[in-house]
Design a protein around this nucleic acid. Sequence first.
DNA 1: TTTCCTGTGTGACCATTGTCACAGACAGAC
DNA 2: GTCTGTCTGTGACAATGGTCACACAGGAAA
Lengths: 221, 221
Amino acid sequence: MLTAEIKDRFLQQYPMLRELPDEDQAEMLATASLMHVPAGTVLFDEEQSCKGFPLLLSGNIRVIKASPHGRELQLYRVIPGESCILTSSCLLGDTPYHARGIAEQDIEMVVLPASAFHTLLDKHDTFRGYVFHLFSDRLTDLMQLVSAVAFQKLDQRLAILLINKPGPIHATHQALADELGSAREIVSRLLKGFAEQGWVKLGREQIEITDTAALRKFAAL
Amino acid sequence: MLTAEIKDRFLQQYPMLRELPDEDQAEMLATASLMHVPAGTVLFDEEQSCKGFPLLLSGNIRVIKASPHGRELQLYRVIPGESCILTSSCLLGDTPYHARGIAEQDIEMVVLPASAFHTLLDKHDTFRGYVFHLFSDRLTDLMQLVSAVAFQKLDQRLAILLINKPGPIHATHQALADELGSAREIVSRLLKGFAEQGWVKLGREQIEITDTAALRKFAAL
DNA sequence: TTTCCTGTGTGACCATTGTCACAGACAGAC
DNA sequence: GTCTGTCTGTGACAATGGTCACACAGGAAA
């Protein structure tokens, strides 16, 4: 059972649920439960099937593929307002996961039982539209990612990654490598190159972009 | 308007449409049209939005990403009974395509107008389930592909590709390279290696697997 | 037959990335 | 302060894949 405050934040974050008829909304809220998950938790993993439909309130989920040699590659990130489409995929396709989901920060999420999820999907276009959109976006993301991994050089991918991170970047080289699916040393090496070009300033767990324009030009090349 | 013969084949290929109430089925069939497309045609391309929902009767569609340097990489293949999920993604998300679709053979397909597609989706669970399943499968495929491109060596990917092709393989090295996202010379080189191991016999546009077990073992390594 | 075109074989060479093995550097704990 | 664990810098090296520049083979067309 959710508190009034959580309900508010929940509906704030997922506006399409506000459009449900009152009784359906109430029913949905009645079956939902709130979960707290500490940062670092593995929320799901390969070959593991799923229980409910999670809707994020706060915190991100990193969805990754791990290689047998200990490297990893981030497929995408789930942010509040987005829900994890992989779960939907599981619930709808009855297939197990094929990736690992890790809580990047502490997470608050509302979990709908599978039955409620199906009911919403059957009865309400807006919810359906929302889920389809998520699928659609993920497909697009993944196609983009495949293309990047297959055809782009690492330095460009790194540049793009940096550009798309907001503000002063706080991350270890290892973390960046894990996002790119590469090794820490390579990232260090490339960053050093960027620094020598005067594009970034490096510090411990910190990267400051000093010449966005140049970096962007390099990335777009 | 479809002929009776086409209707039959159509419903044969897409069983979930047979479960529709008669009048809905009739309405759907009334708005559908048959298209023939010769092999090699580009059915859709990046940044190009879409008209209708195609359901394949015969022939395959290769969905690929092309690199700026002329290389290409196959994302997946659409076979009869499957429809092209990318199109759904477009219709549902109003986003343009982000890949290219090429008719691998001559194609027959039934095309539903976007409106009919949406109607079916709204009214019928089975159709909805079908579409969700397609999405789900594609997501899985793509995640698998990303992982392969990022972490597997080309020789293994080639071996897997060969294993999964039925019967005596009839393809140019270039075609294989395009499926893998690599260059022709590399494929030739690797195939030569396989031949030296006695795993395959090579001929012009033809590859015969002579030791499936060894090849499989190598692929699984 | 000769001519072409496409597909394949190949060797030399390069660029990129990955691996390994450390050495320093910094921050927080003690 | 010292210690300790994490993060980063770095050099040598290997391996994989890609590029280029051809030669050559086989089959279809002229």
